[in-house]
Design a protein around this nucleic acid. Sequence first.
DNA 1: CCTGGGATTTTCT
DNA 2: GAAAATCCCAGGA
Length: 217
Amino acid sequence: MLKLQRLKTNFYKQNTFKLARALLGKYLVRKIGKKTLIGKIVEVEAYYGPKDKASHASRGRTERTKTMFEKPGTAYIYMIYGMYYCLNIVTEKKEFPAAILIRALEPYCCHPEPSRRVATKSRHDSASASPRRAEPTMTEKLSNGPGKLCQAFKIDKKLNGENLISSKKLYLAKNPQEQISPSQIKKAKRIGVDYAGHYKHKLWRYYLKNNPFVSKR
DNA sequence: CCTGGGATTTTCT
DNA sequence: GAAAATCCCAGGA
């Protein structure tokens, strides 16, 4: 059985780039009434400071971006392309705008609606080659991208500004048994930020090697 | 394999 | 009025 411990204030106080790596392998927990959705974080991107041209905060504090200036451990959620939401974890000291975009999740369990088997029978995803998944669950299909995971986990602007340290609806947790080693982490350019001048080349995307839920290699 | 366009609406100039 | 931290699908090589 998966034993999860909620992540506390100190976890969020790490610098943005350390925290981005530390987020890999941690769990996003979403409670909706009596139901709980859980997904392992497998891909993230860092957006750091007012000079990062790819960051919404590069043009200062606005109605939308004010959440990025909040204290670490706050959820920053915005609408993108009129159709999707994106979930970020605010980092750094209050008043310094930085956040980490959650780009992909590996669902752990429990999309209850259709009576479908949870596909991962052998659950600790070992490094060993698991043969192809039989029936992908709904969540599996729907959480391999920043917009899709918000859809699957029913995350929208109502949760913008939520404090992940105290929230009953949305938080992060770890399985103390599970450790991610640096060799499992791959660094890459961020997606969809070609407009960002030289900041578009920054290797501020991190993902778990060989994880099938990563949005792009 | 890759490239390009359309959907759709909030946000900021 | 233009752009956007996306996604999906169609069409070409």
